[in-house]
């Protein structure tokens, strides 16, 4: 393989590590909100190196490079927004937090105001 190929393979390895970590985190984390964290950050970080590797392997000015650019921008903008929507819906419908969580300041503030 050429230098190109080795660089692309290295990027693929990084992306695969983070994608797999994110999937394991989604399976392993204790409550909804921490799972949302995994999906919003680690999956983005796992997808970007894959797209970079594709752009390197096929040439950044080819059709694959432009498609990778579009998918990357879409990921960066819409992924946190969708995670925000899901987290807000979960919080509004009263999904409880993990028993080991440290603090819920919204609850604290609400109690302060009601007193």
């Amino acid at each position: 393989m050429s230098v190109h190929g080795w660089v692309a393979a290295a990027f693929c390895a990084v992306g695969l590590f983070f994608s797999l970590t994110g999937a394991i985190g989604i399976v392993r984390m204790p409550d909804v909100y921490t799972r949302i964290q995994c999906s919003s950050k680690t999956i983005t970080m796992g997808a970007i190196p894959f797209l970079v590797a594709l752009a390197i392997a096929e040439g950044p000015l080819s059709t694959y490079g432009s498609r990778a650019l579009v998918v990357g921008i879409l990921l960066f903008i819409v992924n946190p927004a969708a995670s925000h929507a899901v987290a807000r819906a979960a919080y509004k419908t009263g999904v409880p937090m993990w028993s080991g969580s440290v603090v819920d300041e919204v609850q604290l503030r609400r109690e302060d105001e009601s007193e």
Partner: peptide, 26 residues
Amino acid sequence: RIVRANVSLAHRILAPSRPLRSGMVV
């Protein structure tokens, strides 16, 4: 900071003890 946050989050996920201090912050 993306790289730094992801490395720390990966450590949190993969460490057997799950060092989480999660909570809602305002």
